[in-house]
Design a protein around this nucleic acid. Structure first.
Lengths: 179, 179
DNA sequence: TATTTATGTCAGCCATGTTGACATATTTTG
DNA sequence: CAAAATATGTCAACATGGCTGACATAAATA
């Protein structure tokens, strides 16, 4: 796990011992992630801009669609932004009929979030644009590509968040599958 | 934009090209990409914020470091932003001694971009943060993980850009390996 | 009853993207 | 050579979506 090639035969380019030895940068993955993510979010961006929406709206709509009835606080945790930032885009989505808020049944302070049919349709449309790209990639790569991608991306997530993310994905799949 | 890929890559279960059928969204990859990319850029963000720099500075510094002597126009193409946006962050990087501009030898209108030693050090530091994450993932996934990730990410890039990206990565590797 | 919690809102700031217009130096072309 | 095209820079104005801080309200909880 920690291949410290320290001490051995002092090569010309040994880093200073105290500074902690570093593996050489993995430039190809760093750059491929940049370009892949850029294209990946680029498809939805085009559709969204026609509605005068941005990526922020997309993220909110996506997670509300995937987690019907979620609390505002949960959404803030996932998006990792402030309630003021969320409030701005959420208000627009509500005003334009993509999302609705319902008072919590047990805790009436909560405003549980749901997509409207209109909101679900938009969320689905955007997800399908991205799915076209993903499926194109999987088709090129052959069988096992989906599993390999899932494992790679999961391993790239902070280990603290990983379980939560996996649980969230599993739960959302369950909910959508029943609907 | 009309990227109707009519079975170019031999996908067995391609849906009909017409408007009707769509493959179900691949929710897990969509969400894993979101979280993986978020954590991936999160590490550098922390370091950058202490220098009152942002992601925009990171991108500029990264590509200049990887492509010493590149033209401003080339950088604009890669980043896909306007020269005004670039100008702002580039000026800060130049003023603070991370990047220098040299008049082109053949074409004296050009301002070729280079990182200073200070700039290279910062670029390397940021890349190493990301490399730690990537190597941790590869270590978890076992042999072949690097190749699999490279293939997946490459396949996710717009096919028009793919060659250019690969050429750029190869060229930059060559340059850095010689330095 | 007092406090904490869930949410919303106002006001303002910052970073980074945009468009449009224009300036300057240099190269290329007719 | 004069004219046009090119590479770059700059000024001004604006939009989006982050942020902080302060404060308000309703409902749950101690």
């Amino acid at each position: 796990m920690s291949p410290k090639s320290a001490g051995a035969a002092g090569g010309v380019s040994d880093p200073p011992a105290g500074a902690g030895t570093s593996a050489p940068p993995i430039w190809d993955i760093i750059e491929l992630l940049f370009f892949a993510y850029r294209d990946f979010v680029g498809d939805p961006d085009e559709v969204l801009s026609k509605l005068t929406f941005g990526r922020a709206h997309h993220r909110v709509l996506h997670f509300v669609n995937r987690n019907p009835g979620m609390k505002v606080a949960d959404l803030l945790d996932i998006l990792n932004i402030t309630k003021q930032s969320l409030g701005r885009v959420l208000k627009q989505l509500v005003d334009q009929g993509f999302v609705i808020q319902k008072e919590g049944a047990q805790d009436r302070r909560q405003r549980l979030l749901f997509v409207t049919p209109k909101g679900e349709a938009l969320s689905l449309k955007l997800a399908q644009l991205q799915t076209v790209r993903i499926n194109r990639a999987f088709a090129e790569l052959g069988p096992g590509a989906h599993e390999a991608a899932r494992r790679f991306l999961t391993a790239m997530i902070d280990s603290d968040n990983r379980e939560g993310v996996q649980r969230q994905i599993a739960r959302a799949d369950h909910v959508k599958a029943r609907s």
